[in-house]
Amino acid sequence: MLRLSKINKYYAVGSHRLHVLRDVDLEVEAGEMVAIMGASGSGKSTLLNILGILDRYDAGEYWLGDTLIRDLGEGQAARYRNQFIGFVFQSFNLLPFKTAVENVALPLYYQGVPRRQRNRTALQYLDKVGLADWADHRPAEMSGGQKQRVAIARALITKPRIVLADEPTGALDSKTSEEVMELFGEINRTGMTVILVTHEADVAAKARRTIRLRDGKVEPELVARAS
């Protein structure tokens, strides 16, 4: 489903270059749920941004399905993000002035789906995350857990190839975290590929596989958690 080979990424800091990712190799099978862990500064956010086509890399190859993701223009990158990837963020990133159903429907707006149709689809996805009754509420009226479930519905609505979650429980209390992780588990069981970035071991524990990053390198998978 997803293959990184010898990905290198540099950041220019002043006059010298910071080598953020060093020869990262990674393969994720379709239907897997993978956690990426690492201390801050280990390069895990950069890796996630590259996986999410939000950032470029300097060397290597990134295959998403049968599509090579490299040197894309802004427009093309936007199109691939919209079609292939569902995002779930730590801070939810819902648009505050839109209702839950409008937020969920937003990715379909950029696919040119007519309003009525995309709102109907959005309502179905809200129902899947158990929030059909909250369709017309704005994010400010919702709890953190509810907001994150809206965000998950939004990530799923385009039927992406992978769902990328960046610290999805980082802003939630432990009980809500568990519920959200439960939801990710359910989604994964329907066959969706999920990649989580987290620094919480118990969150990572829900994943079938954990990849650890240190100083921009993938550590050998000493503890394979494969079932």
């Binding site: 802004e74 199109r79 937003l106």
Partner: peptide, 8 residues
């Protein structure tokens, strides 16, 4: 946010 969701 819109760009992340695929706004060109």
């Amino acid at each position: 946010i819109r760009k992340a969701l695929g706004a060109p």
